[in-house]
Simulated scan of single mutants.
Amino acid sequence: MKVIASFPLRVNELKKIIAQCTGQTILAWGTDPIVKQLANRACDVLPQERIIGMKHEKAPFYYHASPTPLKGKIRWLEYMNERIS
C-alpha cells in the first residue's frame, strides 16, 4: 500500500479502517477529469483484490453508478449485479 504524502497524518487511520473492512469496495466516481487526482489516491490505498466497478478504458475512472440516460443506469446495475451475485 502506497503512503499518500499529502495526507500523512491520516494515513494510519485510513489503513486501520480499510483493514477492518472485509467486503468489496464499489468504485463509481465517474469519468470527469476533475476527480482524477483523488481517484488515483484512492486507488493507491484501496486493496485491489476487493475493488469492483465498471472500469472506464482510461484509468483511474470507473463509470458512475447513476449516469444521466436511464439505459446507462440499467447497464451499470446489470453489470454490478453480475459481479456481486
Rank of each mutant, 00 (worst) to 15 (best):
M80R: 06
Y62L: 03
A5V: 05
P47T: 09
L14E: 02
I52H: 05
H64C: 01
V3D: 12
Q48W: 05
K36I: 11
R41A: 15
K58V: 04
E57L: 09
V11T: 14
R50Y: 12
H64Y: 06
Q20E: 10
C21Q: 15
K16E: 14
T68Y: 12
A19T: 04
Q20N: 04
I17N: 11
C43L: 12
E82W: 02
T68I: 09
I51H: 01
V35D: 07
K15R: 15
A19S: 04
F61C: 07
K15P: 10
N40Y: 12
G53V: 00
I18F: 03
Y63G: 01
E57V: 10
C21I: 14
E49L: 10
I84T: 04
K16C: 04
V35M: 12
G72A: 12
I34D: 15
H56W: 09
Q48M: 12
A59N: 08
A19Q: 03
V3F: 05
T25N: 11
A28F: 06
R83I: 06
Y62F: 07
A19K: 02
K73D: 09
K58Q: 09
R10V: 11
L27D: 07
Q24V: 07
F61Y: 15
D32M: 10
K36E: 13
I4E: 06
K55T: 01
A59C: 03
P60T: 02
P67V: 11
Y63Q: 00
N40M: 03
N81L: 08
R41G: 15
I51A: 00
A19P: 00
L38T: 07
A65T: 13
V3I: 11
H56E: 02
E13V: 01
K58M: 06
M1W: 12
S6M: 02
L77D: 03
L46Q: 13
Y62W: 10
H64M: 00
C21A: 07
A39R: 10
V11I: 15
Q48D: 08
H64T: 01
Y79D: 03
I4D: 08
A59F: 06
K73H: 09
N81Y: 05
K36G: 11
L77N: 02
A19L: 02
V45P: 11
Y63V: 08
N81Q: 07
G53P: 01
R10P: 10
I51R: 02
K58R: 12
R41Y: 15
E13D: 12
R50K: 15
N12C: 11
A5H: 05
A42R: 00
Q20T: 11
G23R: 11
G30D: 02
S66D: 08
K73A: 13
N81E: 08
Q20I: 04
K16V: 12
I74P: 01
G23T: 03
A19D: 06
C43A: 05
Y62S: 10
R41L: 14
V35Y: 08
Y62N: 04
I26T: 01
N12A: 15
L14F: 01
T22A: 09
T31D: 09
I4V: 04
A5R: 06
E82M: 07
P67I: 03
L70Y: 14
T31W: 08
K15W: 09
S66M: 13
P8F: 05
C43P: 00
P47V: 02
K55G: 02
W29F: 15
L9H: 14
